[in-house]
Design a protein around this nucleic acid. Sequence first.
DNA 1: TCTGGGGTCCTAGGACCC
DNA 2: TCTGGGGTCCTAGGACCC
Length: 415
Amino acid sequence: MHHKVIFHLDMDQFFVAVELRDHPSLRGKPVAVGGSRHVGKGIITTASYEARRYGLHSGMAVRDALQLCPQVIFVHPDIAKYVHVSQSIFRMLLEYTDRVEPVSVDEAYFDVSDVVWKEGGVEALAMKIKRRIVQTERVTATIGAGANRQVAKVAAGMHKPDGFTYLSPERVADVYRDMPVGDLCGVGRATEQALHSFGVHTAGQLAVFPVEILKRRFGKWGAELSRVARGEGDDVVLRPDERPQEKSMGHEQTFSRELKNEHDILGRLHLLCEKVARRLRAAQLAGKVVSVTIRYKGFETVSHERKVKRNIQHEMDIYPVAEALFHEAYQPAQLVRLVGVHVADLMSTAHVRQLELFVPPLEPDDLTRACDDIKERFGERAIGFASGTFNMEGRFLSNARAVAQYNPFHHRIAS
DNA sequence: TCTGGGGTCCTAGGACCC
DNA sequence: TCTGGGGTCCTAGGACCC
């Protein structure tokens, strides 16, 4: 049996790359997308390679970034633009195979097994794709290739930026022998620490470590871990029409200042419910599990969830559950840093209709549809349902203003 | 390192049922 | 009920990914 050839495409410093492309004056300088010098809070999403030389990286707190590199230039993210570039690139990949699976705006797996030989081999095809990305979008990408997704991802990490690495099955053991376990797909901080405590530091050591011990410590994941360390993995890349349904949808928000007033917090919670509900309706989905997350000043995080009887998609159904869950979880003495709302156990409204023949229809009424449309065009606080507003205190408007600020994480690539 | 926001999957205990 | 074993559902929390 012949093994497959899976490619992992990873756009180099993607957000920064698009900004450097569009603003040549920034080139050669330490640049970070996300965050802001003035707010002095939050995190950066991407650091340019110049900035990385100072130790900056994605996920880093703005405050730390400023310490390490005071001259760093912050650029506000333009996610709509990045999504556009990303979609153009992923569309191009579809010319080679229908098995293209985006994992995020800047990464995708695709299965080239059926075309790679008539395209002149693994390297020739990868180079051609890299070239086409530069020609059409003027940004660079790194491609990793392997017999499965996990190996392809490791391969992509080996030479960046603008790189290409093929980790053929024959080469895997050799490369993995001295590679840190943390470089394996799925080994994060916690797993890495646990493995270190076993004396396992390299993928090679993990590959020969007794599976029974791994299973005892990591459960189901233990056996998988052992396989991944031996270069085995998942070699199925799904076509767009084969992708599973989304399972949950939610929004959370960290406040620029911690909140202690319950009405303020509930105001934010209501806005989050509205946003989730609107997305559910747009995606024609409804869900049965509502959950609320509260994060306190010290980063202690609690969540409460409840399964409800019916599939719901409207904020007038979601918010009352969310409010009840909030009261169950909330400790009033503490300052609140974040709240979130999620709806899970999702099902398409078409399916819901089949199952719930004798209950009132789920479809958004004309009023709801009109409100969604208005918000789509004029923004978050253009209109709202009066039931959940807290404007009697005069607080709601200022809350709404804060929430309506551009949120760089709103857009998700359809996948 | 004082830590964003979007997700997925797994675990473990208790309820409840037969 | 001084009491077994197994299955499924519900809920809270955590690890991991980008």
